[in-house]
Write a protein that binds this DNA or RNA. Structure first.
Ligand SMILES: [Zn+2]
Ligand SMILES: [Zn+2]
Ligand SMILES: [Zn+2]
Ligand SMILES: [Zn+2]
Lengths: 131, 131
DNA sequence: TCGCACACGTTATAGCATAACGCAATTGAT
DNA sequence: ATCAATTGCGTTATGCTATAACGTGTGCGA
């Protein structure tokens, strides 16, 4: 169960995100794709749902926006917990992963008898250039 | 610079959140406070802004909702990084803090020369009762 | 051929958040 | 006391984010 062939709409949305230098809201994506026949938000949201499911795209909860995954590996398996730094100045988003945090969180949560389904870690601040 | 005396609107919003058994959206708070004279979203959002600033309330980014802080200490100083488990079943939210995660994140971010302003950690899943 | 799953298109609606205006009360110099 | 600056408040209007509900078409296995 790898990543299926993307449909036309999914490819268009994926392309828009991949070629963007920062996160995009669904409505920004919609505007970028009007020339390709997109007319309504649902066309974007439906594609995003699938791309999120396939792990090709991440949602930034604190921005209500989306970014293409920058993971090196080929999305053959779920990458674990994903964390982001988000610069308030230039909008740059950096994705990173850390086993130590993942294990520590998992251990803390286990003491609550809580079953994790999705973990959000987002760090807002200023990048080196924007400090 | 502790927590100033709350204004009437701030107290009403704080009370609504404190007596709720789960997170509330700004519009839900508005509805709860109509009997107390609230008429417009801005009355809620302005109070929330202050309560967030004072550290009495937290915003859950993945829910677009707000919860009263459950920290034991008296909010005399910023508590560090705040994390939440959020049950998809019953809506229960649990706030917790962990030095180890805080330090690990801070160290990872330092390697990017990134200046952290606010950290969001939210774990969605199912609590013991809803498993 | 029938039934089902899935992607798609469209319209309408729901839910979340802020802009912009004006007014009133408070504070804290001068 | 007076003026200016700050802060809170109320109202209207607007903008941004996300989903509901309905119908269409296409592919595919029973
Ligand atoms: Zn990724
Ligand atoms: Zn930057
Ligand atoms: Zn707290
Ligand atoms: Zn639960």
């Amino acid at each position: 169960m790898g990543t299926p062939q993307l449909t036309k709409n999914q490819s268009l949305v994926m392309g828009a995100l991949a070629h963007s230098d920062g996160p995009m809201s669904a409505y920004t994506i919609l505007d970028k794709l009007r020339d390709h026949g997109f007319r309504a938000p649902l066309q974007v949201y439906r594609a995003l749902d699938k791309l999120l499911e396939y792990g090709l795209v991440h949602r930034l909860e604190s921005l209500n926006a989306f970014v293409a995954c920058t993971c090196p590996h080929e999305h053959e398996h779920d990458h674990g917990v994903t964390a982001f730094t988000i610069c308030e100045g230039c909008g740059q988003v950096t994705e990173f992963h850390d086993e130590a945090i993942e294990e520590r969180l998992s251990s803390l949560v286990r003491t609550q008898n809580f079953k994790t389904e999705k973990t959000t870690i987002e760090i807002r601040g200023h990048c080196k250039s924007c400090a």
